[in-house]
Amino acid sequence: MAFVNLQNVTYQYPLTKTPALQNINLQVDEGEFVAVVGPNGAGKSTLCYALAGFVPHFFKGEISGTIEVAGKESSKSTLDEWVLNVGLAFQNPFNQISGAKYTVFEEIAFGLENIGVPREEMKSRVEDAMALTGIRDLADRSPYSLSGGQQQRVALTSILVMRPRLLVLDEPTSQMDPIGTREVFGTIRKMAEDGMTVVLVEHKMEWIAQFADRVVALKDGSILLEGKPGEVLTSDLLAENGFGSSRYTSTAREAKKRGLWRKENLPVTLDEAVEGFALTLPFSSPKGAPRGRGESGK
């Protein structure tokens, strides 16, 4: 059975008229990296909260259907048990700072203190997690003195250190610079390869195509489409429904209309675009991927 299993999940926040999630069926295998895309208001954050147990345990409201992670059912579990398996980081980094700690090191240790990890193990886990996300040099700074992008790294590290089996991330890199974003995606990818299951909400299509195993497209609280990144992110259905796309996809789509794209499938990544457009430009000599660091994918 799938590691994450959502069956017919419909959910409505209190005091609202329409459901935020409608009849969601979603299965994710252990170690799989699933990206969730969709316009604002599609229900992406609500889906994250549902996976992380905050819907309905924290937000209340009406829910039907079942949410299972690691063989446990959300409705039969309490939130404090649930979070031991499922970690959540979201967009606004400032509001994720606990407020109880004076340094980044203490901040990252906060969760481990709460769940009773012994001191020596705690220290080494904090060190390891900081090394993983590249924030060792921030250890003694106050979390409040950091920039938005740095705070986002701290928020992510604070969850990674808990070693959740399912990691739920809601736009975790929105305030990071492009190369910082790529590094963080590389880290998350590696965590997935080591067996962590990842569900990630993201607008940056190019990175999704390079790092995710599968893409789920949400619209108006329902799943519009799901499948391999290359198929979902290039589908006309998404373009018609106001989803964003990488410039490679949108430009190739336009090129196809003008007869300048000769392949059947549209590209999502740089490599795919180079390969396809090389057919149009018989005289060009495509250069190999110049730089490493995740540029050429997994």
Partner: peptide, 13 residues
């Protein structure tokens, strides 16, 4: 949001 964030880190464990 802060309540969610600290709860996600086992505050009420």
């Amino acid at each position: 949001e802060r309540a969610i964030a600290i709860e996600a880190r086992g505050f009420t464990s």
